[in-house]
Amino acid sequence: MELLRVNRVNHFFGGLQAVRDFDLTLREGELLALIGPNGAGKTTVFNLISGFYKPSEGQILFMGKNTAGLRPHAVTALGLARTFQNIRLWNSMTVLENLSISQHYRLGYGFIGSILWNKSVRESERAARTSAEELLEVLGLNDYVDEYPKNLPYGLQRRVEIGRALTIKPKLLLLDEPAAGMNPNEIDQLIELIRWIREKFKLTIWLIEHQMRVVMSLCERIKVLDFGETIADGTPAEIRNNPRVIKAYLGDEG
């Protein structure tokens, strides 16, 4: 089934065209990579899809619904989660609290419940805590439930951030350079984790990545951006031998 369709999206920052005629069809269960040199517009594409930017032109259909112009929290509510290039965990909150935010936002109680803190509020709070603890257990983070994220090693912080994104029960997960700044060992664990959550939560994953090891070992399909334009779309083998891709990354021969 088709999960995401992007039709001829253009985006301008003033006079600068950051994304040009971006097209994409993403089917359920796919694992797609978006690669390209620095400044190619990859993160801009993510920001457009997740509602942080409103596209200047074009259409974004997520599960058949046009999301162009929706605010990020509304896009999230449809089942689209994302992580950020530089980890944005809440360092003043514990790991458990970090994983509780989105769940607490789904709790039914309103303002009156919030200030009176009656019985039904207490019960739904307890249920939310339990489900966050379960997710941490599944991700192998149960030793760090009450730890503050800034005290964790980088690889684990990334794991917490991915776990946090999973709390909204997404259908599509956008990962913005998940392997950035990781050592080879951490990268291996990350590849394992992505494979595993994809199976376990039946996710469609779209990632931006510079680490070719991650891209080549995980993805069935790769899209290449350069100066906002799509210059290639295909299997890893096709991309590896595509002359335009090689030119974009390495420059002209001679």
């Binding site: 997740s50 942080f52 605010r71 990020p72 929290h73 999230t76 509510a77 989660a81 994302r82 950020f84 944005r88 965990l89 809440w90 360092n91 003043s92 909150m93 935010i101 989105s102 936002y105 789904r106 946090r164 994104a165 709390t167 909204i168």
Partner: peptide, 16 residues
Amino acid sequence: RAIHGSEDAACSLGVN
């Protein structure tokens, strides 16, 4: 508190 920490992260997790 989530907004105070990081507004982008907060809205990406469904906080209006």
